[in-house]
Design a protein around this nucleic acid. Structure first.
Lengths: 232, 232
DNA sequence: GACTCCCTTCACGATTTCTTCATCTTGTGG
DNA sequence: CCACAAGATGAAGAAATCGTGAAGGGAGTC
């Protein structure tokens, strides 16, 4: 559940600025390249989740960049979003032919660009994480990711989103100790700047809602918290 | 649950390549035709589940191909997905007029195309099932996919298309929580870019029309919505 | 062209949730 | 047993989410 990293490839400084502002506002981390060679280099160095790739580029055009990216095994999961000049249908077909996942015509409207990036990342994530571990359980406590609810026998616990993610994170690895900083990343969000003590408050509330089972969340003094793995 | 077979009809070799790559990657078996006559021949020989049909074709255009396919009793269950040039509104109207099930504007975005194909096949599968399975029900609420109406006892609810799809989607998996983004894909359309909170508005209207049963659509704060599965 | 229906967006208030902070309790080492 | 650090607790302000009504725009109809 980390924050998605995007590689923006665009030679026009103004356009690049627009891309950056648009996508950073959506909470993405961005890396930027101004030509094809730099794009390839940065893609390999940073392993971004998605690359926004202009077709017209100095040194190496977008088509060629895309082809080479696709040929790189270590970038198997990279999503490529092409930026093509308006009405240049041949570019689009070429781009899709070398494996681009989607395209947006320039000038790109921020709303559409952001929406497409979001949709692409969501689908990519869904693909990489096939249906399966939709149920987490330890003892008689069950975290149901499909129904977004937590049960124990007949009893149901009404948790807030943050409490839910907190429990989900810890119960996925019973016995493992999580530092507060880790829990913040998982449950609150990466890149959100809040006090680590915040976790204490959520843990407290979570324990309270879990009633007798609240003690399954153990405090590890000086480190953080963990979900008990003592056989129930 | 056999592997679906698709017939791809496209005269541009590059575009055909894109179609093939996109859909084979999704696990479909494909057959290819480059003109209208070949399309008809292969459709009859291979009896595919779905045909992706370009409108502009040599010899016999897509409209005419579609018309003839529809006239063939042995291809009753064939699903037709039209590929139309961008902004050619007239093509779309014509296509749907001769019985196409859906259309995608060229150049086709892989994800969108794949999503639509998947959705169409899912719908077709449901349609071919016995009548009983074309009724979705939970409690005394019945969603009739054949008559496109929703009933509860004697009462009939008059829903808009979007409200209908929304309800259909959720009632098909009672208890499962749907994120707004998912609901947008299912109920509004893949590749349509609208505000996620648009869903809220449709839900509100749906609840209002369902009257007392509106509460069956539950809000899962911070996540999305779901259809209740609490035993009636 | 006026009208209707549907979809979409927007803004406001009500409510819930998150976060911070001050205080109290507990655990630990000396 | 004390002192101190770390955690637990409760309260309250800040922020986010959701429900709602209304307005605008497009497509189709009369």
């Amino acid at each position: 559940m980390t924050i998605p990293k995007l590689l923006l490839v665009e030679d026009d400084p103004d356009l690049l600025e627009v891309l950056r502002l648009t996508l950073q506002r959506e909470g993405y981390e961005t890396v930027e390249a101004r030509d094809g060679e730099e794009a390839l280099r940065l893609a390999r160095r940073h392993a971004p989740d998605l690359v926004v790739l202009d077709v017209m580029l100095p040194k190496l055009d977008g088509i060629e960049v895309c082809r080479q990216l696709r040929a790189d095994r270590s970038l198997q999961h990279l999503v490529v979003l092409m930026l093509t000049a308006r009405a240049e249908e041949s570019d689009v077909v070429l781009g899709l032919g070398v494996g681009a996942d989607d395209y947006v015509c320039k000038p790109a409207r921020p709303r559409e660009l952001a929406a497409r990036v979001k949709a692409l990342l969501r689908r990519a994530r869904a693909r990489d994480q096939p249906v399966g571990d939709q149920l987490l359980a330890s003892g008689d406590l069950v975290v149901d990711l499909v129904r977004f609810e937590v049960r124990a026998g007949e009893e149901r616990f009404d948790l807030t989103p943050t409490e839910f993610r907190l429990l989900q994170t810890m119960i996925a690895s019973p016995g493992r100790v999580f530092r507060r900083a880790e829990l913040l990343d998982y449950a609150v969000g990466v890149g959100v700047f809040v006090d680590e003590r915040n976790i204490d408050t959520h843990v407290k509330s979570l324990r309270k809602k879990l009633g007798g089972r609240g003690s399954l969340i153990e405090t590890v003094r000086g480190i953080g918290y963990r979900f008990s793995d003592h056989a129930a």
